[in-house]
């Protein structure tokens, strides 16, 4: 486990993602990219899907990337990474590579992961490439102007699920992508949040130590998309975790473990109230919507608690073995 000081030192020694990009103030993405990079000791090749991160960091002829970086299209980041990983294996096998083991990291948003990139992700996970896939999940198509995605929570207002005289925000429940990923039986999958940097950093370390694919679904705040103050980015992310809206957990070889239990769980309403995308829920007519969202969150938490309890012995055995 790296300390904050160690992470900062690594960043100073080898800047892998520099400032000067045009990501918004309060955006969760730069924190994610830097924490992921600083938590990987060896060399990295990064692949990005089309999206906020790609657009804001690579305006020709400038780049914010200090590591080899490739962007091809929106829906195919996992397939592109598959090719890079296959190239790595081929060149290693034929003695044309030297130096430390390279880690291939994909960064894609929820649109590029939950929706248009799901097939490519599924194929890559099934094939078992050694790579880390990071989904920066800001819960809508933010780069194109806040349109609803499969990751957008129930009732959230977006530009394609607006609140109107009939519309009440997104009518559907968000997709459980992490569960879909887990169904591919990959060695490591986890959910994390920018607010809990150490939890995230440890998960990155565990993820890249695997011999196969690993996946991190990281909640990423979006001031213009969620409708919160830029200065509140870290707070909104923290409240998402403390209200149990975004549980932090990991799945190791199919075994679940909650990695953070809110000591004093916040009411969901406190998190909702910080964001304009949920402002319509304050009306009396929308109480049902709020409780429906709450029911989803509680059910999700209980399911994770149940799975964590089931896996407790497995994790204990593993700890004993490695001790």
């Amino acid at each position: 486990m790296a300390s904050l000081k160690q992470l900062a030192l690594r960043e100073e020694e080898r800047p892998r993602f520099t400032g000067g990009h045009s990501l918004c103030a309060g955006c969760g993405i730069p924190t994610i990219v830097r924490t992921v990079f600083d938590s990987i000791p060896g060399p990295v090749v990064a692949v990005s899907a089309t999206g906020c991160l790609e657009v804001a960091t690579t305006r020709y002829p400038f780049t914010a990337w200090g590591v080899p970086w490739l962007h091809v299209a929106f829906e195919n980041a996992a397939a592109v990474a598959s090719g890079v990983e296959a190239a790595y294996r081929a060149l290693a096998q034929r003695g044309r590579l030297s130096g430390e083991r390279v880690t291939i990291v994909v960064f894609a948003g929820d649109g590029g992961t939950y929706d248009i990139g799901l097939q490519a992700l599924s194929g890559a996970l099934e094939r078992g490439h050694r790579f880390l896939y990071v989904c920066y999940d800001n819960e809508a198509y933010m780069n194109t102007g806040i349109q609803r995605s499969g990751a957008t929570p129930f009732a959230a207002s977006t530009t394609t699920s607006p609140v109107g005289s009939v519309g009440r925000g997104k009518a559907e429940v968000r997709k459980d992508l992490t569960a879909i990923v887990v169904a591919h039986h990959i060695p490591y999958a986890a959910q994390a949040s920018t607010s809990h940097w150490q939890d995230l950093s440890v998960k990155v370390e565990r993820a890249v130590a695997q011999e196969g694919p690993s996946f991190l679904n990281i909640l990423s705040t979006c001031p213009p998309g969620w409708g919160h103050e830029a200065r509140d980015g870290a707070r909104v992310a923290r409240l998402a975790v403390e209200s149990r809206y975004w549980p932090l957990f990991e799945v190791v070889d199919g075994h679940y473990r909650l990695t953070h239990y809110p000591q004093h769980p916040m009411a969901l309403v406190e998190w909702l109230e910080m964001q304009k995308r949920f402002s319509h829920l304050r009306g009396i007519a929308s109480v049902d919507l709020e409780s429906e969202l709450e029911r989803e969150i509680v059910a999700q938490w209980q399911e994770l608690e149940r799975r964590t309890a089931e896996s407790k012995a497995w994790f204990e055995d593993r700890a004993t073995e490695s001790a």
Partner: peptide
């Protein structure tokens, strides 16, 4: 290294990734 991908879209995507990787 034979890569059995899940669509032609991914075949060409992986090909681009591999070719540019070296």
């Amino acid at each position: 290294v034979l890569l059995q991908v899940e669509s032609e879209h991914s075949a060409m995507s992986a090909a681009v990734g591999a070719a540019l990787a070296g």
